[in-house]
């Protein structure tokens, strides 16, 4: 392993981690706050990228293009939300259906499976050509959105979304429309995912119909890593979102490391899946181990 070349990849990992941190924050809203495993993400990330790139290729202002990416993501979340609440389709399946449908939609938007956008010809918000700038812009986006979300989840509406995820029976008994709140949370979450898609497409210089594949797993990995490191010390909601972003940066640093160690890029999805599976199973395995210890180490729990 070449240490200096690893160090050279670090700024890139930070920039990538910040952009994907926005997606991870979106996943945090559904997975942690709403207690909803939303599979829409894999599709809505690509939709955000596709919308942003196609608009910019048609000479739209890059920030306006990002705004449209947010809107497209929100629309995807709305569809999943309506599948679940109005049609009564189970949460995970609702997301999978939207995600699948979005593949066709994304192909329609892009016209082909990949559309490049050159940083030489277009005024991009972030690009891997200018990594220091990308880090600054990515960090500003994260700070701005964490501030907004901190405010939002402190309001009456924000509290009612938290209650919906925590205890829907209690929420309804307190007059909260839990279905409405689930849709609202999904819209908000996928808006962030769309934004991340729009930014990431600019960062890598192209929108690809497959760019969102496995995005949900990366989001979960970021959340879990952030939690493992900061879970004990960060109680404040804004700090929790911050730890998600740090988790995301860490994830991409680890990915850079394993690439250096000789893993091929196509192995990464397996690697990510195993990491997330490992961390997700930890609480369960810990509890099992603990109960076995309590039984004196002889009997099975």
């Amino acid at each position: 392993m070449n240490f200096s070349s690893l160090l050279n990849t670090l700024p890139g990992s930070v920039a990538q981690g910040l952009v994907w941190g926005l997606l991870a924050i979106g996943v945090y809203i559904t997975y942690k706050v709403l207690d909803y495993s939303d599979m829409t993400v894999d599709g809505s990330m690509a939709t955000g990228g596709a919308v942003a790139v196609m608009l910019m290729l048609n000479d739209t202002n890059p920030y306006l293009a990002l705004l449209a990416a947010v809107g497209a993501g929100m629309l995807s979340g709305l569809v999943t939300g309506l599948f679940h609440t109005v049609c009564g389709i189970p949460a995970i399946l609702s997301g999978i259906l939207t995600q699948l449908g979005l593949y066709s939609v994304n192909m329609r938007i892009l016209g082909k499976s990949n559309q490049a956008i050159s940083v030489d010809k277009y005024d991009l918000v972030v690009s891997l050509r200018y990594i220091p700038e990308a880090i600054i812009v990515g960090a500003l986006f994260c700070i701005f959105l964490i501030a907004i979300l901190y405010w939002f989840f402190g309001t009456e509406v924000g509290h009612s979304i938290r209650a919906t995820g925590n205890n829907p029976n209690m929420a309804r008994a307190q007059g909260i429309n839990t279905n409405w709140n689930k849709v609202l949370g999904l819209v908000l979450s996928n808006g962030l995912v769309g934004l991340a898609g729009g930014l990431y497409a600019q960062y890598q210089g192209s929108a690809d119909v497959n760019m969102g594949r496995g995005a949900i797993v990366i989001g979960l990995a970021a959340i879990i890593m952030g939690e493992v490191i900061f879970g004990k010390i960060f109680r404040n909601f804004a700090l929790k979102l911050f730890s998600v972003v740090i988790g995301s940066i860490l994830y991409f640093a680890i990915i850079a490391l394993v690439l250096q160690l000789g893993l091929s890029t196509t192995d990464l999805k397996l690697f990510s899946a195993l990491i997330v599976a490992l961390f997700l199973s930890m609480p369960h395995l810990k509890a099992k181990l603990f109960s076995r210890l309590k039984w004196g180490g002889h009997r099975h729990a």
């Binding site: 309001t155 009456e156 509406v157 938290r162 209650a163 925590n166 205890n167 307190q174 007059g175």
Partner: peptide, 29 residues
């Protein structure tokens, strides 16, 4: 467990209850 939101603190639970039957806005909770 059913009557309260376990992940939220006491005053947040009370605030949720004090809005029962009222519209919830973007005011601080």
């Amino acid at each position: 467990m059913t009557g309260t939101a376990g992940n939220m603190n006491i005053e947040e639970n009370l605030a949720l209850a004090s809005r029962r039957g009222k519209s919830r806005s973007l005011r601080w909770a």
